[in-house]
Computed example of a mutant assay.
Amino acid sequence: MGERAVQIDALAPMRAPHPNELDRRRIERALKGRQRYLYVEPSVVPVAGGYRVESPCCSRNVDPDGGIVDVALIQFREGDWRLFRKDHGGGTWAFHSNFPRLGDLLALLNVDADRLFWQ
Rank of each mutant, 00 (worst) to 15 (best):
V40Y: 03
W81T: 08
L102S: 07
V47Y: 12
A30S: 15
G79A: 08
R101M: 09
L105S: 02
G49M: 07
A5V: 12
E54K: 06
V69M: 06
Q119V: 13
D9A: 05
I8A: 10
G103E: 14
N20H: 00
L106K: 01
L31V: 11
L109P: 02
G66T: 04
F99D: 09
Y51N: 08
D65N: 12
N110K: 04
P13R: 01
R85V: 01
V6W: 02
R26A: 08
R85Y: 00
D112S: 03
Q119E: 11
R77N: 11
L73D: 10
E41N: 11
N110W: 03
L83R: 08
K86M: 12
V47E: 15
D112R: 03
P42C: 08
P46E: 08
P19R: 07
G103S: 12
S59N: 11
K86V: 03
R60I: 08
G33Q: 11
L102A: 04
R4Y: 04
V40S: 10
Q75G: 07
V45M: 13
Q75L: 15
E28M: 11
Q75I: 13
F95D: 02
A10R: 15
W81P: 03
R15Q: 07
G2V: 14
R82I: 07
L106C: 10
P46Y: 06
H88R: 09
R36N: 12
D23M: 06
N61H: 09
A94R: 00
Q7G: 03
A107H: 12
S59M: 14
R115N: 10
D80Y: 14
S43G: 12
